[in-house]
């Protein structure tokens, strides 16, 4: 059987983040407005496989998805040690800006999910002039810990199994089985302590707090979409955030915490109208 090629091209590149050299992997497809997509905590860019294959979107957008350092095919920086990874707001924002500057992207759109949906709030607050628009999936300004994240990195518990199990529950039971399995599988492939290290940003350091008041939607449009089955960043939490910013939010039916990955078909129905507004 002849191989059916996808339009996605993968690259490795080297650039500095906060003065430290990093080897980063990213994938891209399409032409037009740069659309940089940020994956969730403990996963990688494969979550956006459907977007990178969607002809309708690729006609108008250059979709670019990078794996964060320590995730997917991106390397940890030199001198790293297992168990020391912790994502801070400063380092997360730095890596996004360094990637965008390194690729010389002019006024890209950035869309992030979960931790990515949180960091776009920091981008909106502190760097709005750099973006054409920001899209937050599963965005919440704040999250109280509701389970003990130490279980995610213990030598007597298999990291892949526990991270996969946590991710599995965050999806909608109505999402297709195959897509749910793949989404969980990405989590099962994460390195030891990486999911937990990302959650330091999500549950502690990345709290948007009063900075939410600095967000000016008129300078850089913000769109918020949240799946109804997400119990981490719930639609109610997104609504509070949306009200604070003064924008509408969209509650997506039949999807959970990973809309673009667990049920792309359903998600795209909600994303197309947003992208049409941005064009």
């Amino acid at each position: 059987m002849k191989i059916k090629m996808e339009p996605i091209i993968g690259h490795y590149g080297n650039f500095d983040i906060d003065g430290i050299n990093h080897r980063i992997y990213w994938e891209e497809a399409g032409e037009g407005i740069p659309l940089v997509c940020l994956h969730t905590a403990g996963s990688d860019g494969r979550q956006y496989r459907a977007l990178l294959n969607d002809k309708k979107i690729l006609k108008n957008f250059r979709v670019i998805v990078y794996d964060m350092p320590w995730h997917g095919k991106s390397s940890p920086p030199q001198g790293s040690k297992v168990g020391h990874y912790q994502l801070s707001t400063k380092s997360y924002v730095s890596q996004i800006l360094s990637f965008i500057d390194g690729l010389e992207l002019i006024k890209p759109v950035v869309m992030g999910c979960s931790i990515g949906g949180r960091v776009i709030l920091h981008l909106a607050s502190d760097h709005k002039e750099k973006f054409r628009a920001l899209i937050g999936l599963q965005s919440a300004g704040h999250l109280d810990p509701y389970y003990d994240i130490d279980w995610l990195h213990r030598q007597d518990v298999h990291g892949g199994e526990i991270c996969g199990a946590i991710a599995y529950g965050l999806m909608a039971p109505t999402s297709p089985k195959e897509e749910r399995f793949e989404t969980m599988w990405h989590y099962m492939q994460g390195g030891p302590g990486i999911f937990k290290g990302d959650l330091f940003f999500y549950k502690f350091d990345g709290d948007i707090g009063d900075k939410v008041k600095q967000i000016d939607n008129s300078k850089c449009p913000i769109y918020l979409l949240t799946g109804e089955y997400d119990y981490s960043a719930t639609p109610e939490e997104t609504k509070i955030l949306a009200d604070n910013i003064g924008v509408d939010m969209v509650k997506m039916k039949n999807v959970g915490h990973f809309p673009m990955s667990e049920n792309p078909k359903e998600f795209l129905k909600y994303l197309y109208p947003v992208l049409n507004k941005i064009i």
Partner: peptide
């Protein structure tokens, strides 16, 4: 209501005891 941790998040489920067998086989 679709997942054990979802119940935990809503504080309608209490889990106690030695959690290792549960958390090491959560799925």
């Amino acid at each position: 209501s679709h997942d054990l941790i979802a119940l935990l998040r809503r504080k309608v489920l209490k889990i106690d005891g030695n959690l290792h067998p549960l958390m090491s086989h959560l799925l």
